[in-house]
Design a protein around this nucleic acid. Structure first.
Lengths: 251, 251
DNA sequence: ACCTGAACACCGTTCAAGT
DNA sequence: ACCTGAACACCGTTCAAGT
C-alpha cells in the first residue's frame, strides 16, 4: 500500500493530527529494546547535561548505544525530537484540581509552578518558543488553564487574551532566566565592572546605576510582572470588580 | 609579539571590552574589498531571506563571492556574526530626543518603536535572547531609556526594574510574534479546525473557544501587556502618584 | 520484516600552502 | 603579509545491503 508522506512541519496542527490518527495503528513488534520513551528520556538527559546544541542524533544514539540511523525508526527528524520533548515536559501537572481558593490565588500558584517546571530544564526553554504548543499534554494544560479563567466569570475573548498574555509571560521569563542571567556573584561583579568602565561623558547613567543593574534577580522580576499583569487583567476583565462582563475596552 | 588568545564568549562583557580596546589598534590594509560592514550587511540579508538557520558561513561567503575561509579574517566565529548583527540592528534610533511630552507617552512610543525595529528582521529575533545585550549600540539605547525613567523621578532600583521588565516584554513579544504566530487567514482556519476536532469529553473548553483562540493578534496582545505593565509601574513607582519615592514594596 | 553501516550533502573551523 | 584551498571533525538524513 502506498502511504502518502507527511509533509507537515513537526509540531504543527496537521502534524499532531496525523500523529493522533496514527496512534491507533497496529504497532510493529520491536525486536530491539529501543523505544520512543527511552529515546526521549535520553534526549532530555542530554539536553540537561550538554545544552540544546549538545542534542544531536549521533550523540543521542551513542547514549543509547545504538547506531544513529536506528533512531529514524522511531522518530522522523531532529526537529521532531524537540517537539516531543517540549510536550513531554508539559506532562507534569500544573494546576492541581485539589487546590481551591479564589481564582487569582490559584492562577498565581499555577503560573509559578509552570515557570518552575520550565526551569527544571533550562537549556530546553528556547524550544518552547517555536510555534504554538499543540501536543496532547500542552492541550491538557491549556484546557485546565482556560477552565480556571472562564470559571471566574470572564468572557471568552478576555479569557483567551489573559491566558495568552500570562503563558507568554511565563515562558519568556524562563527563557531570559535560563539564557540571559548573570547570577553568580562573580558574573555580577564582572558586569558591574563593565558598566563602571564606560566613559563618563557617553554613559553617565549606566555608570551611576551599575550596581542596581545587576542586583535584580529573575524571581523578583517575575513576581513584579506577574502582579502587574494579574492586577490589570483582574481590573479590566473580571465582572466582580466593575460590572463590565467579558469585554475589555478596545484601544 | 605573542598576543593572548581571547577566550571570552562572544557578546560577553569581557569580549566587548577586548573589542573596544582593539578598536584603537592600527588597522591592517585590506587588499580585497571584504569588510566587516559588507559581511554584516550580507548576513542580515541572508537572515531575512532564508531564516536564522540559513545563515551559515559558507552561504554567507557565497553571497559575498569569496572563499568561506576568508570570512575568518574579519570575524572569529559564526557566533560572533550573530552578536554583531544584534548590535547592528540596535544602531537605529529608538528614543528621538526631540519628542517631548510626559514620560509615559514617550516610553510608549519608544517601546512600540523598539518592537517595530525587531520585527523588521523577524528571523533574527531569537538572537536577542542570548545573554545580555552589551554592544555599543545596545548600551546607547540603554543609556537613553534609563535616562528617561530616571528623569521621571523614579529611584535607581525601581528604574532598573522597570527598564528590565519592559525591554524583556518587548523582546519576547517580538519573538512570539515572529516565530509563533499563525497570522494568515488560512493558518487561523487550520488552527480553529484543529481545536474543533478535539474530543468533546476531553477538551470541552478548547472546543468552545476555538475561534477566540485564533482571533487575538500580536499587536493587540502587545498593547494589552504594555498598558498593564506601565499602569502598574507608574502606580507603584512614580512619586507623583502616591508619594512613595523610589522604592517598591518587597514581596 | 526489521535494522543499520556506509554514503551523501552539508556544517564550522583550522592551517599550511600559495600569492 | 595577506589570503584561501584543502582538510578535519563534526552534523542530519537516506538507502541499499545485511540479518
Amino acid at each position: 500500500v502506498a502511504v502518502a508522506v507527511d509533509p507537515a512541519r513537526p509540531g504543527s496542527a496537521a502534524w499532531w493530527t496525523r500523529r493522533r490518527l496514527d496512534a491507533g495503528r497496529p504497532r510493529r513488534r520491536r525486536v530491539d529494546g529501543l523505544t520512543l520513551d527511552r529515546i526521549l528520556d535520553a534526549a532530555l538527559e542530554l539536553v540537561d547535561d550538554e545544552g540544546l546544541d549538545g542534542l544531536t542524533m549521533r550523540r543521542l544514539a551513542a547514549r543509547l548505544e545504538c547506531g544513529h540511523a536506528s533512531l529514524y525508526r522511531h522518530v522522523a527528524s531532529h526537529d521532531e525530537v524537540l517537539v516531543l520533548l517540549v510536550d513531554r515536559v508539559l506532562g507534569a501537572p500544573i494546576l492541581a484540581p485539589s487546590d481551591r481558593g479564589d481564582p487569582r490565588a490559584r492562577a498565581e500558584v499555577a503560573l509559578r509552578r509552570y515557570r518552575g517546571l520550565l526551569l527544571e530544564h533550562p537549556a530546553l526553554t528556547p524550544a518552547f518558543l517555536e510555534g504554538q504548543l499543540l501536543g496532547p499534554n500542552a492541550l491538557a494544560r491549556r484546557e485546565e488553564a482556560l477552565s480556571l479563567v472562564l470559571g471566574a466569570g470572564v468572557g471568552p475573548d478576555d479569557a483567551v487574551r489573559a491566558y495568552l498574555t500570562l503563558t507568554h509571560f511565563v515562558i519568556s521569563s524562563a527563557v531570559f532566566e535560563a539564557s540571559g542571567a548573570a547570577r553568580t556573584a562573580e558574573d555580577r561583579r564582572e558586569m558591574e565592572q563593565y558598566f563602571s568602565s564606560l566613559s563618563a561623558e557617553e554613559h553617565p547613567v549606566l555608570r551611576s546605576v551599575a550596581v542596581e543593574l545587576n542586583a535584580v534577580d529573575g524571581d523578583e522580576e517575575f513576581e513584579l510582572g506577574l502582579r502587574a499583569l494579574l492586577d490589570h487583567l483582574e481590573r479590566g476583565v473580571v465582572p466582580a470588580q466593575a460590572g463590565t462582563l467579558g469585554s475589555s475596552p478596545k484601544r
